[in-house]
Design a protein around this nucleic acid. Structure first.
Lengths: 235, 235
DNA sequence: GACGGTTAAATTGTATACGATTTTTTGCAC
DNA sequence: GTGCAAAAAATCGTATACAATTTAACCGTC
């Protein structure tokens, strides 16, 4: 199943750099690429059989989304969000997601609700499965719930912003997540849908805020400053 | 006075493409470049005495911010937001600005308030002046109010998002604004600050929503579909 | 003079080339 | 061996080159 993100608004066939960007983004979001990994332009180019020009453009694009950090004269790395950055990402989500939810609820159709329930089912199914691929699909599906809400809201700008926030959240969870089953809050997605169905928007927003708080609560946002080389052995 | 946007968070000296990007962005936001204007890579490169490579990178960057639209094999143009896009931009602002305001109010210091009042004064001064440059500075100052609020909120992610929204709003106003004195809502900025000072957050949010509504109300968001070539003379 | 098709000019998409900066390796003294 | 300086390799920043596509010009026909 394709990401909900791409479901609409991507009409033009993607040109080279965009394809590479999307491929790398998927790899980052699905955590096949770890934070901090060096992404050299030549390597990326060779990997996709294109010149450094396109590889560079793709990396540049990812840096605008906050998934890659490019350092002058040093190259590009998979972003390694700081605890402070992580806090800001979730703060931003708490700020926008209730609003998105309200707009989505105002426009949601029975077909949308059906699609979302299907997504939920898929998510649950993946949770019970074993293996790396299932785990990755589960990560993606869990994010897709939030993206689909943004899609239903009908605001392309908020949708793009949510795509960025969800992608960066995935990075944060990869770095600071504690419980292996990070998407423990799966049932919460269902609760939110139910609240939307019964038009209880205040409750839906409340649930959404709790849901985000739960994800954040599973993080250990302590400064891991590489332990300064001294402290690492001073025990 | 530099844009509030750059006041913080820009530590690294900017590399070529970024300087060009910023220069073009300023030109767009200050409405020296009209929506729809073609931005050919060669021309941009010549103008800044750099190769097409850098010009292209700058244009690419601007397209991620929604200020420039690049069409495959056709080139880059100053964005020409559709009425629907315009509505979404303001919808997004209504969605996020109250939240930003609340966060800002929670962290605001007397120094911040002083800075904002100075900005207000500057804005008022520019409004009374004549001439293109004063008008452009006024446009920028009017946006800087909203950006400074985002800056005070302490969330770099929301700040960047607001920068995008304010810049794109400027484009929309350039296209669809009716009253020449588009920043008639200057006094509303002062009211919002007052409400923040007295810790009346609900009122501040209310004022903010009205303020955004006022800006939007000044727009004539009717589909100007270039009048279809037939209708243009069929009168 | 208007229309349609062919050719020429301009512009974009991508690759390659080269100087500059960073990183790694090498080699030497201690 | 350890530490440091210099050379070599790798990598980035930017410019140029060439193929592909679009846009403009040209020109004969009706």
């Amino acid at each position: 199943m394709k990401s909900a993100a791409k479901a609409l608004s991507e009409d033009t066939s993607e040109t080279g750099a965009q394809q590479i960007r999307d491929a790398i983004r998927d790899a980052i979001v699905e955590r096949r690429l770890s934070p901090g990994t060096k992404l050299s332009e030549s390597d990326v180019g060779n990997l996709f059989n294109v010149s450094r020009t396109l590889a560079r453009a793709a990396l540049q694009a990812l840096s605008y989304e906050g998934l890659v950090s490019v350092e002058t004269n040093r190259g590009a790395f998979v972003a390694y969000p700081s605890p402070e950055e992580a806090r800001q990402i979730f703060s931003a989500r708490r700020l926008v997601e209730p609003g998105i939810l309200r707009e989505a609820a105002a426009r949601i159709t029975p077909i949308d609700i059906k699609r979302m329930k299907e997504l939920l089912l898929e998510e649950g199914r993946l949770m019970s499965e074993r293996g790396q691929t299932a785990r990755r699909a589960e990560i993606k599906a869990s994010g897709d719930f939030h993206l689909m809400l943004a899609e239903v809201s009908g605001n392309a700008i908020m949708q793009r912003f949510m795509e960025e926030l969800v992608a960066r959240s995935s990075l944060v969870i990869a770095l600071y997540g504690q419980s292996t089953a990070s998407s423990c809050g799966h049932s919460e997605h269902g609760d939110i849908i139910s609240a939307i169905e019964t038009k209880d928007l205040d409750r839906a927003c409340q649930l959404m805020l709790h849901h985000i708080a739960h994800i954040e609560a599973d993080l250990d946002l302590r400064e891991r400053k590489s332990l300064g080389l001294k402290e690492a052995f001073e025990l």
